[in-house]
Write a protein that binds this DNA or RNA. Structure first.
Lengths: 330, 330
DNA sequence: GTGAAAGCGCTAACAA
DNA sequence: TTGTTAGCGCTTTCAC
């Protein structure tokens, strides 16, 4: 069977296509009686407008693109969840595609978005993306791009991020306040800008506290975080606090805690940066600096709305503040 | 600026629109020379075909819909990840929308998919969805629907599931093999068919083992699973094994274990059904029956392909087998 | 209050 | 080998 169209309805009722179109939009010109008949028939025939025809005619689509390295990541999931919910609320559909951290796939995704004439794009870059020219070109077509989380260095673009510096500064302040003296701090991949900014602010905050012995580790996986933790707690001088830059690192460290039967917060404290899901899995719950994917999603979406409403000529980086959530682990 | 169109290219080159169209499709009719000129100019002008026009003209879109209760769920994430990757490979885009377990939102999503003239739909129902008539109507429009995970009771539809019966039967067999005598089994929401089938097979398998004392709990959240576990381990007759129907329940039970400092597998065993991510978070790792979202996604996608290729007249429920993964927790 | 007509960008049957 | 034409389903201006 084929979809109901305005033409079909107009033929059955013996009116013109434009009358049907107007009636269905509740146009004031159309008489109540005609309107009633048309709306009734449309309902009976399960009429749904063909979005493709509308987009073609009106030259704008209610579709947004969202490009992300991987769908299987709880931070991005909450980001997407927020964006999807907000989009649906205003009648936009979201086309989500994963790049697998491959710049070539990224270019391909961009092409698909262009072909689909999306109204805007949310993009989280792969660490290997050197060149954002393809993104910049979209400006000429009035397609706004909001970069999130992993954003480019360039200034002339829109980006939203976690306030990394402030967040890891807060974590460092907790360590100071709790009078920790021998801290193991585990960060992620050195090449990621997110690692760099978190590490830098962390060191900066602790720089005038020479009484704190600080050991920095870099883990590329949960397993590596486990191994690092394990190694340091086998030494005679055990750390009295562990800092974890991310959920991935936290789960690795906690597995080591369980393995070595380390009691926290008594024997040692632990603090993390997280969106809050994993810290609540443990008992006692982990104290963490909250970096919420939901909030970031909301922020990105409102920036998108600003662009879509024509205020496109600002180049701005917005950050969301992180807050300390006490769990009792330090 | 405005997008490049066939017309624009044809005007510049002084040829007809159809020549341009054919050249860009590498149609054999067009001379090599004309083809070269056209392709070059198209590239220079960043030409990308307008999908809306193509869809309108060809009456079919390369878009699939995927409806899921929530994006923030690791099982669904891996499902979506598999479906998205497979879709992209054959040039389809995925429109993901979350229902929030609200049947009204589900209806709305369906409407949007219909308006967008998607080629097919993957759907995971909310527990409250009583009536799948709206889905069945899509058959008339030749839009295949593949239900996954939470599927309707009806026979005349396509569905893919974890082999729930076999999976929970395997879990029960482990309990028997390990000679457990006092088992706490925590299941999910009673109204879900997934709970029903898992529970039924579990009970069935244990039915001729009257020496095993079995307590069934139902938890609607991780917190409730925690509370149930906590309560039962405060009794004098502590269980010697805990079975968790899902990750959500497992994490709740494990939090209780940590709180009560229960040593497993020594004091009590624990076994779960999971896709494997959460069981590996703990030490010792949790023994589980694997229910993989990726595999289910692949299966759903291949079923979709079958439908899209015209083999739509089968009503089938396919399941993927679950396997035991030993973690050392029981 | 309603209709006719043009056109969004593309494909494909038919003509030359 | 290339061009002409009609039409996909819709919106919107202009006319009556």
């Amino acid at each position: 069977m084929v979809n109901t169209t305005l033409k079909k309805i107009s033929e059955i009722l013996g009116v013109s296509i434009s009358t049907v179109s107007r009636a269905l939009k509740d146009h004031p010109d159309i008489s109540t009686e005609t309107k009633r008949k048309i709306v009734e028939l449309a309902q009976a025939l399960d009429y749904e407008p063909n979005i493709n025809a509308i987009n073609l005619r009106t030259r704008n689509s209610k579709v947004l693109g969202l490009m992300v390295p991987s769908l299987a990541n709880s931070f991005y999931d909450s980001f997407m969840s927020a964006v999807e919910a907000a989009s649906m609320k205003i009648g936009y559909a979201l086309v989500i595609m994963q790049s697998g951290d491959d710049p070539e796939v990224e270019r391909n995704i961009l092409k698909i978005y262009k072909q689909n004439r999306v109204s805007g794009i949310f993009a989280c870059l792969s660490p290997h993306t050197a060149d954002i020219e393809a993104f910049q070109k979209l400006k000429d077509l009035d397609i706004p791009v909001i970069f999130f989380d992993k954003v480019p260095q360039e200034d002339n673009c829109h980006k939203v991020c976690i306030a990394d510096e402030s967040a890891s500064e807060q974590a460092a302040r907790v360590l100071i306040a709790k009078k920790k003296k021998n801290v193991l701090a585990i960060f992620g991949n050195k090449n990621l800008s997110i690692t760099k900014s978190r590490l830098e602010a962390f060191l900066q905050t602790l720089s005038n506290h020479s009484d704190i012995k600080l050991t920095i580790g870099h883990a590329h996986s949960s397993q590596e975080a486990h191994d690092i933790t394990s190694a340091f707690f086998s030494e005679p001088q055990k750390p009295d606090a562990v800092f974890c830059m991310s959920d991935e690192i936290l789960t690795g460290a906690m597995k080591a805690f369980q393995e070595l039967k380390i009691n926290y917060p008594e024997e040692t404290g632990i603090i993390a940066m997280s969106d809050g899901y994993f810290p609540k899995l443990y008992h006692p719950e982990i104290t963490y600096i909250e970096t919420s994917g939901y909030k970031l999603g909301d922020l990105a979406f409102s920036m998108m709305m600003t662009c879509l409403n024509g205020n496109n000529n600002f180049n701005q980086k917005l950050s969301i503040d992180a807050a300390l959530v006490e769990g009792g682990s330090i």
